[in-house]
Simulated assay, not measured.
Amino acid sequence: MKDYPIEIDDYLSGNMSISEQQAFEERLRTDTELAQEFKLQKEMFTMYGNQKWIEGDMDILKTDQAKQLQSFFKSDKALEIKTTINEVISENRTNVNSKRFWFIGIAASIAVLLTVSLFVFKDKNYEELYASYIHLDEIPSLVTRGEDSHKLLEEAQLLFEAQKYEEATRSFSEYHQKETTINPLSYIYNGVAYIELGKFDSALEQFRHLEDSNTLQAKKAKWYRALVFLKQKNKTKIKEVLQIILSDTSNYKYKEAQELLDMID
């Protein structure tokens, strides 16, 4: 039985002498079966070896998904997986007449790719969904032309638009403490600012205030709560809120709630 996997592994790992490398490379040009197995094993070796993690069109590496994969492959968790794969292969290559370690290597590498894909792309999908549904341009301005503007509100909105969310939340909080009659839109702005800061409990509190405001804007609270859970990647909570929205066709963002539920379900 041919020991292609052992030879290929020795070549890729640099365990051959110069003369052995030259002889092996010559055989690659004439032995079709060896060339095919070399191509496949090289791809597997690249996945968990210390080489470039991807070859070909390098523009692919500029995508957000590629950057997340690169980051994962450099992590301690990926190193642990790689070490385990190599240990399993080493343990099973002692039988030189068996290709078992070769198939174990392929299976392990595929398992790693599936795990990483689920880990990375699941998170990525939630991030993309949040970005596509937040629609900040739909939030009416707090500053009305022709009317005396509330200085704190005007300042808070400007800070929000400049993406200075920490400062914006402070201005909104000061406004909420000082005033007895609150513009309900300020709860939306403040809540979204807290989402961007990763302060999800504070964001949910703002949307509870919005829902309790008994204004026309109150009907938007459930949708923004859903966006909080979307940002958190909390599928159970997202579905709960979306199903409440879908209980009545007149609810705010009914159509979008159905679309979002279909995508995450």
Rank of each mutant, 00 (worst) to 15 (best):
T46D: 14
Y133L: 09
Q258D: 12
F101C: 08
T32N: 09
A156F: 10
S75C: 13
L227W: 02
G146W: 00
S17A: 04
S109R: 10
A257S: 15
S250T: 13
L79Y: 07
L113N: 07
A66F: 06
Q157L: 07
T215S: 15
T181P: 00
D10L: 09
F229K: 08
G14K: 05
S19K: 13
E211K: 11
S149Y: 00
D64L: 13
S250F: 10
V120W: 03
T115V: 10
D9R: 11
E179H: 14
L142N: 05
K235I: 07
Y224I: 11
S250Q: 04
Q258N: 15
T94Y: 09
T94I: 14
V88K: 13
G14S: 06
K235E: 08
K67P: 02
F172E: 01
K222T: 10
S109V: 13
E7N: 14
D148M: 06
Y252N: 04
I245E: 06
N183R: 11
Y175T: 07
K39Y: 08
L242C: 10
E26M: 06
A226F: 02
W53P: 02
R27F: 02
I104D: 05
I8P: 02
F121M: 11
T169S: 02
E25P: 04
V228C: 01
R29P: 00
L260E: 01
D123F: 12
S173H: 04
S213N: 09
I104S: 09
Q217I: 04
G14C: 02
L12Y: 10
S173I: 02
G49V: 11
R208G: 05
W53M: 14
Q70H: 08
A257N: 04
E196M: 10
I89Y: 03
L230N: 05
S171V: 01
K42Q: 08
H176W: 12
L185H: 09
W223M: 09
L260R: 06
E147H: 03
I244R: 13
Q258L: 15
K199C: 08
E211Y: 03
K67W: 05
R29V: 13
K39V: 12
H209G: 07
F160E: 03
V241H: 09
Q177L: 08
S75W: 09
L197A: 02
E174N: 12
E174L: 11
Q68N: 05
T115P: 01
S17K: 11
A131M: 05
F24H: 05
I85S: 10
I188Y: 05
T180K: 15
S13W: 01
A226R: 00
V88S: 06
S90P: 00
E174R: 07
A108I: 05
R225F: 03
Q177W: 05
I85W: 01
P5H: 04
W102M: 12
D64E: 15
E174W: 00
E128S: 09
K42M: 06
M47F: 08
N125H: 12
I6P: 01
Y254G: 05
Q68M: 13
R225A: 07
S213Q: 00
Y187M: 05
V120D: 04
D10M: 10
I18L: 14
Q21S: 12
E91T: 09
E211V: 02
Q163E: 15
